[in-house]
Amino acid sequence: MEFFLISMLNSISYGLLLFMLSSGLTIIFSMMGVLNFAHASFYMLGAYFAYQISGWIGFWPALAIAPLLVGAVGMAVERYGLRTVHKFGHVAELLFTFGLAYLIDEAVHLIWGRSSVPYAVPPSLDGAAFTLFSTEYPIYRVFMMAVSISMLIGIYLTLTRSRIGLVIQAALTHPQTVETLGHNVPRVFMLVFGGGSALAGLAGVIGGNAFITEPGMAAAVGPIVFVVVVVGGMGSLVGAFLASLLIGVIQTFSVALDYSFVNLFAKLGITIGPNTPLAALWDLTISQTAPVLPYLLMVLMLIFRPKGILGTREG
């Protein structure tokens, strides 16, 4: 019971962090049709900016400033990069962000070095929030969840209730009409891209000290974020939310399952020895494959339901 509850909390908090990461990507993708390969790099930038700023003026100002800085970088990227390649089509945009991710990684190496940086959880958020049976649950994970949920609500309200949100939604489906109504559609796109990047930056500020701030962190989460967006459904924010939680649950609980085909066959009365064909495959437990399951899920999803969980259209 204790294990189940703790694992449930772990999977929700991990899922919510994934959602923070992927929400920006989903918004950008649904508005602009750009699958931003550099999204995880913005996450990394957020963590490094926060590390630098919190060293100067503390964690709380960094929590606000770092995402804004990342958003500014994102807007500059859209204005001077993406807009130029937009005319060559989506593949060119994808390639551009691919190259950009490569370059941001190298730039981080250049500025902050190859090792991890000591970006730590602030003392006020360090410690246990509550104790469940015998396991402590850290305040910081609760804080992560709170930020993530308020972000979801914030995005939802912005998109449905505010004026700019309505313009964004309209620009998505009918860009020409919105343009004739006097709105500057390229500017809207720039804001959307900047906003999406800022969300990734926020995830970086929070994820950077929960895990480790190091130059490989973008490459480590990059593919997972794509999985979330694809599984959730291209362009669906709620879908991304569900997919994040789903992947959080799958990854957390599969770790606990030490079952392999050997056990299954043993139940069926078949013994598997080291000389059985494909022994290595049958011997693999579910927990060993845990981190690979999201990719498997994505491939299966793309094969059988390319729209994703809640997607409205196919890629």
């Binding site: 699958l35 994808l94 793309l302």
Partner: peptide
Amino acid sequence: TTFAMISLG
């Protein structure tokens, strides 16, 4: 994009 993603996966 679908092909790109599935090849990545």
